[in-house]
Nucleic acid binder design. Structure first.
Lengths: 344, 344
DNA sequence: CTTCAGTAGAAAAACGATTAACTAAGGTAA
DNA sequence: TTACCTTAGTTAATCGTTTTTCTACTGAAG
């Protein structure tokens, strides 16, 4: 609230008694400028509080040093962790992040993508919505800047992606539950149309199958990914004729619903029921005696995402038509008290 | 991944057979252009997939349609809700949001502020870190663009701000606890150097005083705002000689620590202890039988913030030196099962 | 003494939009 | 008919950088 118009490079040049070219070269450490003039320029810039005009610079240089981060669901703590890490890494690499939340709405996703295009972001990091609009494939494939999908892949789309190995994730859960002797295992899987949910379920199923156990299909709860759906599914399972001895919830919203249902029903973990969830939401510490989870390596995912994207950006039009990289990172099992051997 | 360089306004003009000025006027609905030419221009733009170059536009017009959002702590669910709302409202108003997380680190705050300056954001929304760096007051006061503080105010700084009335918040808690007959009331307040914490405590104290009750100063736990600190403080209170009948935790991290301590100690809410917290974190539903809280009106805060900021932006250099607005919004008490009348 | 290389710095041309100033054409009024 | 408005378009200046090209100067070699 105050201060007149900002100084331009011309005023710095005038104060330092040099040309604008010299100022530019000094400030960007490009080209040759004598020590003496460098000092004069820096002093002048400091004195005036000069801050280069990013738009002018981008217009001329063609790079904005802006990354677009388009997230499907900011309310999911796992995505939030990704956002935090990505923001930190981008900032450290000298990039600013334009944050967009599509809130699982394809229309908002589309509008945001168009905006990022207008802004000429140097790259786009996209956690896509579960259901796309009609032209999404094309819109993403024809993105004029490097783009990368995170967490969720889109089938048949030739774009870099970094995801968790969700089959392995399901298998980890399977092996752990089998080790504890569980046989009546339920899954709250979310929407069966969603690839991630299917993979986690398939991983569980195949992990169990490898141990000679068949997953009871009647104990697979399918609906959407909301907390309410998780709660309702859990209630059905807990009240069902044959209550499962273990429940696997495949996402944060679902597991929160599950935990709420358990709290309401007065059951004791892990005596009455073992539960295993995905990721570590902030509230994991509230579950006594600790929550067993399969975690996704969010920090590694963020790092891989940024480094892949930045290298694509620096390749520029050079390393053209190098085909898309699909990177899968491994989840890890963290055993705590919410799972236990079944009573015999 | 593909697609050559993007079309410019010149190519649209050439395809439509008109001048660039006509294209610009058509696309911006400024100036007079005949129906016929408008259609030709729009068709050409659509055909080429033209997207105006934001940097070029900003350079010429002086406005970037970018807002900076500098948040002190992305991990706090309350701030996250603010971020979500602000992003949604900004986007609806045609502004993009550059998200910066200072993570309570003054250095990062400073760097981000400098970056927003370089980007020439049209406005800055700042949730400042708790402790500033030496030149912060000046840096914020001399911000060349409109700025607004959210949630936390900085004393002696002439800048618009939108905050919760934290004295009222404390008073709401006081009145509720008094209504239930509580006398041994503890507070996990966080750092006493932090204005918000002091206000909430003062509100509680004065609210109780108005009912003729004196707050026992020995039951005020002071430390920092981390979950660990909340947990430790709760442990001290629960193990103390005279266990309080009610605990007031003044922030999300602290209340999570408190809940964890209660879970570990095996106490029953609200029979053994009443608790009242601030805001509704996602995990509030896990507390049986529901968590009594004083909530901050985050949606109203976001709306007020955006509308105030946008009006400052449109005032421009016109409404100069209109003095800073300090807007306080009212919290609300939401009574659930975690507070109950004390047993007599 | 002349010529040539090498170097530090300046001048000027972009980048892609907006917009003020201008022009041509058509319509009115005197 | 002439002078004058209006209207619809065009031309060209401009925003603040980066970067290519150009100039002037220095010192060395012939």
């Amino acid at each position: 609230m105050s201060a007149g118009p900002l100084p331009t490079i011309h005023e710095v040049a005038r104060l330092a008694g040099v040309s604008v070219a010299t100022v530019s070269k000094t400030l960007n450490r490009s080209g040759k400028v004598s020590e003496l003039l460098q000092e004069r320029v820096n002093a002048a810039a400091r004195k005036l509080g000069y801050a280069p005009h990013a738009s002018a610079r981008s217009l001329r240089s063609g790079a904005t040093r802006i990354l677009g981060l388009l997230v499907a669901d900011l309310a999911n703590p796992y995505f939030l962790k990704l956002v935090e890490s990505i923001e930190r890494l981008s900032s450290a690499a000298g990039y600013s992040v334009i944050l967009c939340n599509s809130a699982e709405d394809p229309e908002r996703e589309e509008r945001h993508l168009a905006m990022l295009l207008s802004q000429r972001a140097d790259g786009a990091i996209v956690i896509p919505t579960r259901r796309g609009w009609s032209g999404r494939q094309a819109a993403l494939a024809n993105l004029p800047m490097p783009g990368i999908l995170v967490d969720r892949r889109i089938e048949g789309l030739d774009l870099d992606s970094v995801t968790t190995d969700n089959l392995a994730l399901g298998r980890l859960a399977a092996e752990h539950l089998d080790d504890l002797g569980h046989r009546r295992i339920a899954v709250i899987m979310g929407s069966p149309e969603h690839q991630i949910a299917r993979h986690r379920l398939d991983g569980l199923r195949s992990g169990l199958a490898a141990r000679g156990i068949t997953l009871d299909e009647r104990l697979i709860e399918k609906d959407n990914f909301s907390e309410a759906a998780g709660h309702a599914a859990a209630m059905r399972l807990l009240r069902g004729a044959q209550r499962p001895t273990a429940i696997f919830a495949t996402n944060n919203h679902l597991s929160l619903g599950l935990l709420r249902a358990i709290a309401e029903s007065g059951l004791t973990i892990p005596d009455d029921l073992s539960i295993i969830a995905v990721d570590e939401p902030p509230w994991a510490g509230l579950v006594r005696p600790g929550m067993t989870v399969v975690t996704q390596p969010f920090e590694a995912i963020a790092q891989t995402t940024i480094s892949t994207l930045l290298s694509r950006i620096s390749e520029g039009r050079a390393g053209v038509e190098d085909e898309a990289r699909s990177i899968q990172l491994q989840p890890a099992l963290v055993v705590r008290g919410s799972t236990a051997a079944i009573r015999t």
